[in-house]
Design a protein around this nucleic acid. Structure first.
Length: 276
DNA sequence: ATATATCCCTGCGCGC
DNA sequence: TGCGCGCAGGGATATA
């Protein structure tokens, strides 16, 4: 599932294929994904060149020379695939097709259609409804233990829920939230108001480390996507708790099992022995 | 105001 | 072998 590291990896791939290139073809194969596709997509993008590809949380920002900005979100199952030469026949879930003057074909594929596109301008980016209320970028210096504590101290919720709340810190999903809590030895059930400077520092450090490691490995989901036979990607071997139900805790060893619980409708994996 | 539930959607793995 | 079911979880929206 695409979380921040996967989105970052996708952005880097898109940047390589798109920056400085002019779009000669933009086709929407259906009127909507999660939301209606912008109806002036082709009109505003065709003949326009890409000047930058950026990421904000799990959002991909494709900036055009005209100051138009295409915002893309992968949702749960969205993928961008780039073909330099003759692309294979289109898949039923190839919903949006881009083609550059240099002949690259970029397809947005999304079986579950939880992803979406939005079109705005650089001037309006900060006020965009998807971006305006996002919390700090976890890998930037603006995300500190002090900032984190300030956001969570008055909340009456669990640490796990706080990490998934994009207003508090933007970009974590279920996998990396579980992994960061494990690394910081903190229980996902711990109430946020019980977190002081020491625990906040451990957690903020863990979040940064987990995300940076995942990015360094090219993310986990993208590697999965490359393997069309369904074989799991490299990051699978790096996961300490996510999906490891009933396995021995990597820290506590035999006799201490990774437990799966449900928090606000989502699975949480953790070790009740070393995560307090 | 914040916390929780519901919804969107398809593919996959499981049990019978 | 196949069918139905539950699960996967991004984020907006509705409800408590």
């Amino acid at each position: 599932m695409p979380e921040l590291p996967e989105v970052e990896t996708v952005c880097r791939g898109l940047a390589e294929a798109l920056i400085g290139r002019k779009l000669v073809r933009v086709i929407a194969n259906r009127p909507n994904l999660r939301f209606p596709l912008p109806n002036d997509l082709g009109q505003r993008l065709i003949g326009n060149s890409i000047s930058a590809v950026k990421r904000r949380a799990k959002f991909i920002l494709i900036e055009m020379r005209t100051s138009d900005v295409l915002i893309a979100h992968l949702g749960m199952s969205g993928r961008f695939r780039i073909y330099q030469n003759t692309p294979p026949p289109e898949n039923t879930h190839d919903h949006v097709i881009f083609e550059t003057e240099s002949g690259s074909v970029i397809r947005y594929n999304d079986p579950r259609r939880f992803g979406f596109f939005d079109l705005t301008s650089r001037d309006d980016l900060a006020e965009n409804r998807f971006l305006s209320d996002l919390g700090p970028e976890p890998l930037e210096n603006t995300f500190t233990p002090d900032v984190f504590i300030k956001h969570i101290k008055s909340r009456k919720t669990s640490l796990k829920a706080a990490l998934l709340d994009q207003h508090i810190v933007a970009g974590l999903g279920n996998i990396y939230a579980c992994e960061a809590l494990f690394m910081a030895r903190l229980s996902p059930r711990r109430k946020t108001h019980t977190v002081g400077p020491k625990r906040a520092t451990a957690l903020v450090d863990a979040i940064k480390t987990v995300l940076a490691n995942a990015i360094a490995q090219g993310g986990s989901s993208l590697r999965d996507h490359r393997k069309t036979n369904g074989e799991l990607g490299y990051f699978q071997h790096t996961l300490q708790v996510y999906g490891q139900e009933n396995k021995a805790c990597p820290r506590c060893g035999i006799g201490y099992q990774i437990t799966r619980i449900n928090q606000s409708g989502r699975s949480t994996f953790f070790c009740p022995h070393c995560q307090r």
